Amino acid sequence: MPFFRGMRPRGTDRERGTSAIEFSIIAPVFLLLIFTIIQAGLYFHARNTAQSAAREGVSYLRLAGTNADPESFRSAAETLSTGYAEKLGRLNDVEAYGTIDVSTGRVSMIVIGTVVLPLGGNVEVQQSSTATLEQFRGDLRGSP
């Protein structure tokens, strides 16, 4: 049956505006999902930054074993880790704490910082890394 000017098919009056209502229900859920994904990505990026900075600091601290005063390396390694984390970005108020245990031959570095998330709030990120202290030991066998 052809439609004449001014005539609409049956049932369209009842469905008028349903797409606007559907959009108003789905849009907030969809936007919340998108912002949650963005926040999770930023958090994991900050966590990865802290982990990389801790590894850099431990890599530097491992060299302390060949020095007569291994504790002098600690402050330099903490500065190195802090600078590395700030250069990579997304971390604020970065602090690094290094430890050298000569008796067990282990070094560790803890990096702590905060990340600002788009939906509000600061989240603290803390990562650590541990490694073996490099120490040179001469040949203990008698010479041939």
Rank of each mutant, 00 (worst) to 15 (best):
P2K: 15
R5H: 13
G6Q: 05
G6C: 03
R8C: 02
R10N: 02
D13E: 14
R14K: 15
A20Q: 09
E22L: 15
F23H: 00
F23K: 01
I25A: 13
P28Y: 08
F30W: 13
L31V: 15
F35P: 00
F35D: 04
I38Q: 07
A40E: 00
Y43P: 02
Y43S: 06
Y43K: 00
F44K: 12
A46R: 10
T49F: 07
A53C: 05
A54R: 09
A54D: 09
A54Y: 07
R55D: 08
V58Y: 14
Y60K: 03
L61Q: 03
L61P: 02
L63K: 10
E71Y: 06
E71M: 11
F73K: 10
A76T: 11
T82P: 02
Y84Q: 06
A85V: 09
A85T: 06
E86F: 00
K87G: 01
G89C: 01
E95W: 02
A96C: 04
T99H: 11
V107T: 10
V107A: 13
S108T: 06
M109A: 06
V111F: 03
V115E: 01
L117V: 09
L119T: 12
L119N: 10
N122S: 07
V123T: 07
A131Q: 03
E134V: 09
E134M: 09
Q135D: 06
D139E: 13
G142L: 14
G142V: 12
